[in-house]
């Protein structure tokens, strides 16, 4: 598959789409089952469950964290430096405790200078990311110019925020990294499934936040080079390998620079010992 802008690395093939569609239905079916079991009645769940009620019911199971997707073991990492933004995502596609795929790419390229990484509910993630990707590419086609990373981040926030108060919100957490095509300033945006948007120098999603943010707090500096950024990323992934209870099957790492997006080599087979 070509790496050009108009041929995204993971085109939404019929097979992918079908899987996403099925995943969505499987979830709806599971929800129905749960309600039936809980109420002991063969009634269907109320047509409109508000997202707050949903959030509440999920919170009841996770009293420490606001939402189940804050507690995902899918790893997303982002680091900005002097002239680049690094985005890394774990390669494991998981369903519960089962790993379905060990070469999953949880990123989509929005335009030449912007990359988005995502995790969250299966089906929602790819569906939403490719919707955003399509709109970003449509904009580039129509206007012969790319949206800046900050414009895209705010566009994504708007879409996610309107989805949040719709009948069925997307459950997607995102990192959006880019380099401004004009000023060449690197930027990184953290978005959660509630559409809270924050520009940050470094970020993570899922359980990885609890391990990596303090490492990044300590070692990050806005003027680091790409080599130093990779070094820093390795500190994080080492810690994740050391502390996370599952094998997340290594990371896919991509760097956004003023010249575009490049795949970065990372030693996923390195063994990290835990005391």
């Amino acid at each position: 598959m070509s790496k050009g802008l108009w041929a995204p690395r993971q085109p939404p093939s019929a097979w992918c789409w079908n899987l996403a569609w099925q995943a969505g239905h499987a979830r709806a079916f599971r929800l129905k089952l749960q309600v039936r079991v809980a109420s002991g009645q063969p009634e269907l769940p109320p047509k409109q469950a508000s997202w707050t009620e949903l959030a509440k019911s999920i919170n009841n199971h996770h009293p420490i964290f606001p939402h189940a997707f804050n507690a995902t073991m899918e790893v997303l990492l982002g680091i900005t430096g002097k002239d680049f933004t690094l985005i890394a995502a774990s390669k494991a596609a998981m369903r519960g405790v089962t790993i379905l795929k060990a070469s999953d790419d949880k990123t989509r390229q929005l335009n030449k200078h912007t990359l988005m990484a995502f995790n969250g509910e299966a089906g929602d993630t790819v569906q939403f990311a490719e919707y955003i990707q399509a709109n970003a590419q449509l904009y580039s086609m129509r206007n012969d110019t790319d949206l800046s990373p900050s414009a895209l981040a705010n566009f994504v926030r708007g879409e996610l925020a309107s989805s949040l108060r719709s009948r069925k919100p997307y459950n997607v957490n995102l990192l959006l990294g880019g380099v401004d095509p004009i000023t060449h300033k690197p930027s990184l945006y953290w978005l959660d499934y509630l559409a809270a948007l924050a520009p940050v120098p470094y970020a993570a999603h899922g359980y990885a936040q609890y391990y990596c943010l303090s490492i990044l707090d300590k070692h990050h500096h806005p003027d680091i080079t790409l080599v130093q950024g990779m070094k820093l990323l390795n500190l994080c992934t080492d810690e994740l390998k050391r502390r996370l209870p599952i094998d997340f099957k290594g990371m896919i790492v991509k760097a956004v620079t003023k010249d575009g997006i490049v795949d970065m080599e990372i030693d996923n087979d390195k063994v990290v010992k835990c005391a």
């Binding site: 420490i64 964290f65 606001p66 804050n70 953290w190 959660d192 924050a198 520009p199 936040q209």
Partner: peptide, 9 residues
């Protein structure tokens, strides 16, 4: 996010 600090800006 609860006890976790995501951003200071």
């Amino acid at each position: 996010l609860q006890a976790l600090t995501v951003s200071n800006n």
